[in-house]
């Protein structure tokens, strides 16, 4: 099997299955009453955490490729990014329903707009989500053709903005224990730092990239 075929036929399906595990688990918990005393909070937290984890993993594809000198890995970035976005959608929908219908407000965009404006951590999450949306929409190869590779690549650099915003969202919502969001902050900082260094030092030879 060529490396490309390996990634397409083995690695990518495995990543999809792996990414589906937290969701399946959440669904099973929901069906068996296993979401604990505050199910809405549990769903919000678990989907948010999974979305951010998958987002960070998608950022780590490129460094991993460079480290392993395994160029065929790159399609996994899209797989992980789309999976992250799927969880983010459930996360945001849960929030939306909680903020409107479950708050006795019916369909009320005003309640959401006010919350997004007034609570800095929600503003950050909202911005992250808004930035990720065009990336999810244009993730197909059809869109790469339509936009042209250069513009498409430029657009998809928005992820380097969305990821730190999601981390800030997490940092600002915890009350006192910054340990877990701190780990995410560190991971995303390292991944973005790597990216910045690679861009600056990029040379025509692949071997110089390896040194990094």
């Amino acid at each position: 099997m060529t490396p490309g075929a390996f990634v397409r036929r083995v690695a990518r399906p495995l990543v999809w299955v792996g990414a589906a595990v937290p969701g399946t688990w959440l669904l099973l918990d929901a069906l068996t009453g296993g979401l604990g005393a505050n199910p809405v909070e549990t769903v919000t937290h678990r989907t948010g955490l999974t979305a951010l984890t998958l987002l960070a993993l998608s950022l780590s594809v490129r460094p991993t490729r460079d480290l392993l000198r395994f160029g065929a890995l790159m399609p996994l970035r899209r797989t992980l990014g789309l999976a992250a976005y799927t969880y983010a959608v459930v996360h945001v929908l849960t929030y939306g329903v909680d903020q409107t219908y479950l708050s006795g407000l019916g369909v009320s965009p005003a309640a959401i707009v006010e919350d997004v404006r007034e609570r800095p951590y929600v503003t950050m999450g909202f911005l992250a989500f808004v930035l990720l949306t065009p990336l999810a929409v244009t993730s197909t190869s059809g869109w790469v053709k339509r936009l042209g590779a250069t513009r498409w690549r430029w657009l998809h650099r928005l992820v380097y903005l969305a990821a730190p915003l999601a981390v800030v969202h997490f940092l600002w919502l915890v009350k006192a224990d910054l340990l877990l969001p701190g780990w995410f902050a560190l991971a995303v900082a390292v991944l973005l730092g790597y990216r910045a260094v690679v861009r600056r030092r990029r040379t025509p030879t692949a071997s110089s990239r390896l040194i990094l």
Partner: peptide, 10 residues
């Protein structure tokens, strides 16, 4: 508003 533990709606 508040969520009474055990209830879905606030």
């Amino acid at each position: 508003r508040e969520r009474r533990i055990g209830e879905l709606r606030k």
